[in-house]
Write a protein that binds this DNA or RNA. Structure first.
Lengths: 144, 144
DNA sequence: CCGGAATTGTTAGTTACCTAACATATAATA
DNA sequence: TATTATATGTTAGGTAACTAACAATTCCGG
């Protein structure tokens, strides 16, 4: 009954470290790591002319609805985003970046780029590919 | 300025999923995932006749001192552990498992074993080794 | 068209994590 | 020895996650 690897525990440990580092990377834009990730999703969607609803954040971040509500409420209070209803479905709340936030983005994305580069320093492309493909499998295993 | 892989973000996403699954695994012992991990550390130390102090939890879980304090306070209140000072250093608090907790352990460890096995289902040993070695590198990168 | 099922979001209450500031105790050094 | 630095733990206040229960809307089958 020996657990050979403790993979799950190690993923959690790494994630705690990564979250702290991401928080630091977002810090001088005056926001948190999660907030930066939400802004990333919004920026990406804007490029492709797509609307973003809370459900999308839920899926992309793999957190619960109620957690999304909490994060977005804080972001709205800080003026980072605005939310408005759409005509064709009264349940949905469309999320939009404010003008002030747009000004943050370049510097923020740069810092996050640096964060990601620093994270994977010293790992070969081949190993990184394996790493990401394993992440996908584990992720799928958790969703069933 | 394209981030090629978004490895950090993906690690966080996976970790959120893993934490939920671990919480469910620990649930029918009446405890949370973190609490189960703390008990694991204590059980392991006991096998090797080693004392465990809060600093050790901090290092093994890679969370801040104040977070350790919080987790252990809750565990103490629930009667899962006790804490006592040692004669040779007044700063240290030794952490011990209570008798009631010992009764939980077999079933708990079994459920966590199942959780870990389910997590890595479908991943080859070779890829898992690569995965873990990459985790080690990323972890080190975050500590500098 | 109507009633139950599914979808989307919120609220309330809890746990786990964080930083900053603090309190003590021990170790190191001048 | 006295002072400073390091180590360990706590408190206070905040953010991010969770579950459970709820509310409202839309979808779908009879």
């Amino acid at each position: 009954m020996e657990t050979k690897y403790d993979v799950g525990k190690k993923v959690i440990i790494l994630s705690n470290q990564v979250k702290r580092s991401l928080d630091r990377a977002a810090e001088d834009s005056g926001i948190t790591g999660v907030q930066a990730r939400v802004l990333g999703i919004l920026a990406e969607a804007q490029k492709n002319n797509r609307d973003v609803f809370q459900k999308d954040i839920e899926e992309k971040l793999q957190i619960r609805r109620s957690s999304v509500t909490g994060v977005l409420q804080l972001m709205e209070k800080k003026g980072l985003i605005s939310r408005e209803s759409v005509s064709y479905d009264a349940r949905l709340k469309k999320i939009m970046i404010t003008k002030e936030t747009k000004k943050l983005e370049d510097h923020l994305h740069e810092n996050i780029y640096i964060f990601e580069q620093n994270l994977i320093k010293g790992v070969s492309n081949k190993d990184l590919d394996t790493f990401l493909s394993v992440i996908n499998i584990l992720s799928r295993n958790m969703n069933v």
